[in-house]
């Protein structure tokens, strides 16, 4: 007996309704970014993107990515290894603790570092005495970025490695491989796509983080402005085409992220 299908008119109207909602809520804002970015033509777009303040924002965003992603990558692999290949007490607790940054408001993620390193913070006096600036300076931005992107790689690897079990690694060891040989020849090839997608997500979030970085940055133009903060400044100055021009760079990266995800899940 075949499964009863919904009548064609039901299928059509539900599909139309769903796509209308998807279009209105999700696609329209994306289209709006690109249309408004190019509203004043190519020349205005290039001027906005090539502005020295935009370029310095790009540099700072890339610096934050360059530090946050490798740190969280190494952590993600170590954490996923322990959590998925061994049974030990406190394992579930460890998994929950790793998720914490997902549950913390971005604003609170920034507040944390102000409380630690701000003028009235725990280490504020000591830092002032030694002339070290963390908050309202580049190190604060990097720290906040590391915090908000903390779980991404681990979260991507844990379910993947859980499903792969331990047999292949055990076989490698029994056949005489050293620990690192086992890791590089067996484990790494097995997890490379999950690892890659974790890095993609981590990078996208590090580039796009707004709330946490906004709190710790102090908004010093040309110095502590990341790309999303630069978008905010341009927007608040009523330079809409400039704001959307810079926003279009970030949106393009978001679209690339989605394409990579589709491609990875399709290939593997």
């Amino acid at each position: 007996m075949s499964i009863r299908k919904d009548p064609v008119w039901v299928q059509w109207s539900l599909t139309a309704l769903a796509m209308l909602a998807l279009g209105g809520f999700i696609v329209l804002p994306l289209v709006a970014v690109f249309v408004q970015a190019f509203e004043k033509g190519w020349a205005a777009y290039v001027t906005a993107v090539a502005d020295p303040n935009t370029l310095s924002a790009i540099r700072l965003s890339l610096l934050a990515v360059g530090i946050a992603v490798p740190l969280n990558l190494v952590f993600g692999v170590a954490a996923a290894w322990v959590i998925t290949k061994f049974q030990f007490r406190g394992r579930d607790l460890l998994v929950s603790l790793i998720d914490i940054p997902f549950g913390v408001s971005p604003v609170i993620s920034g507040l944390i570092f102000i409380l630690l390193f701000g003028a009235n913070g725990w280490f504020g006096q000591w830092l002032a005495d030694h002339d070290v600036r963390i908050v309202f300076a580049v190190p604060g931005i990097v720290l906040a970025t590391v915090f908000v992107t903390f779980p991404f790689v681990a979260r991507e690897l844990i379910p993947l490695m859980e499903s792969q079990g331990t047999e292949e690694e055990e076989a490698a060891l029994v056949l005489g491989a050293s620990a690192w040989q086992m890791f590089f020849r067996v484990t790494l090839p097995n997890i490379k796509w999950g690892l890659f997608y974790g890095v993609v997500l981590c990078t996208a979030r590090a580039l796009g983080e707004f709330g946490a970085v906004s709190v710790v940055s102090g908004h010093i133009r040309g110095e502590t402005n990341t790309l999303p903060l630069h978008v905010e400044i341009l927007y608040n100055e009523y330079n809409y085409s400039g704001a959307f021009a810079v926003a279009s760079i970030l949106s393009a990266i978001a679209v690339i992220t989605l394409v990579l995800k589709k491609w990875i899940s399709h290939e593997h």
């Binding site: 796509m19 998807l22 999700i26 696609v27 329209l28 804002p29 994306l30 709006a32 970014v33 408004q36 971005p106 996208a204 580039l207 796009g208 983080e209 707004f210 709330g211 790309l227 999303p228 903060l229 978008v231 905010e232 927007y235 809409y240 704001a243 959307f244 926003a247 970030l250 949106s251 990266i253 978001a254 679209v255 992220t257 989605l258 394409v259 995800k261 589709k262």
Partner: peptide, 23 residues
């Protein structure tokens, strides 16, 4: 359509904010 569902995960929140406002 399936790929686009994830857009809010990937799009920086400030970009979403100014885009929605402009609409």
């Amino acid at each position: 359509a399936d790929a686009l569902v994830d857009l809010p995960f990937a799009l920086p929140t400030a970009v979403a904010g100014i885009a929605l406002t402009s609409l």
